[in-house]
Amino acid sequence: MTLDVFIAERQGRWAALEAAIKTAKRGRLRNQSASDIERFGLLLRQTSSDLAIARRDHPDAPITEYLNTLCARAHPLLYRGRAWRLGAIGPFFATALPRSFRAAGPYIVASLTLLLIGFIAGWVAVDVRPDLRASLVPPSLFDEMARGQIGTGVQDVPFAAAFIIQNNIRVALICFAGGMLLGIPTAFVLLSNGWMLGTVAAAVRLGGYDVQFWSLIVPHGVLELSVIVISGGTGLMLGDAILRPRQLRRADALARVAVRAVLLVLGAASLLIIAGTLEAFVSPSGLPDGVKLAVGAAVGVLLYSWLLLAGRGPRRRRMFRFDRPAETPA
């Protein structure tokens, strides 16, 4: 077939495909009817077979480049991952998030270990050199404790909450993103948070303010530290994928874990809204210490029964299953 005949016979469907691409809104075909999408698929398949012919018979003709660009523009409109809708949020928190938490188990344990190493190091540092206490722990803390008003009477609580929530989300996202730098920033965040908690805990123990201190930390800290540990785990996942890609290329190994990890960290970070609210409203409040500790314990039990137990059992059937033989009728 000569180039002219090839073009004359088939340019109608190319123009049709081009027009169909223009009707896509925001990179999607969502606003179109089923028959339009079916027609789009047909046009794309026909045009890509035209592209294959053009490439064989007329490799240097401008039409070949035209057809390639046309197919390349149409392809992502039709081929795409599962769409994300608001309705997916419920199942995400009900099953997907706890499952990816458990799947990330070893990394989360490693992340927790780093936090504990920092904590123990801080604790030991203050124990060994109590004289350094003043340089390790903000002195104002002791003044407040001495006056018996540790952490009480925070004013403008909503702004405190907004500050705390945003700061913690920022830390969680940095823990994840630090995975791109082999997880080194992630490990640093975990160690330094553990260190801070360890030094302060050891210092207040020396001063004998244990109960006041822990009642100030525990209500929100259970949730907050869990989220930091989870985020740290996602960062370590990325770092591990880069360092030990196994059978895959590094870029592929990374991309494979990163999408799972980002959903885990975004889900976990959303819990920080609850943690920040507790931190601003409950922890510094005048509630009895016992109540505050009980709140922390209750949050912990809820959090971990959700993360460890939700979404177990057989997976629900997907809409499309090609990997399972058709069920035999009863």
């Binding site: 390349a72 992502p76 795409r80 996202l173 993103a177 791109m180 990890a261």
Partner: peptide, 21 residues
């Protein structure tokens, strides 16, 4: 995406969180 399909929500979330770095 590198396989030619459209970038989905998860992929866009990853590339935009890492944008900070």
């Amino acid at each position: 995406r590198v396989d030619g399909s459209a970038a989905d929500f998860g992929a866009l979330a990853v590339r935009n969180v890492i944008r900070v770095i």
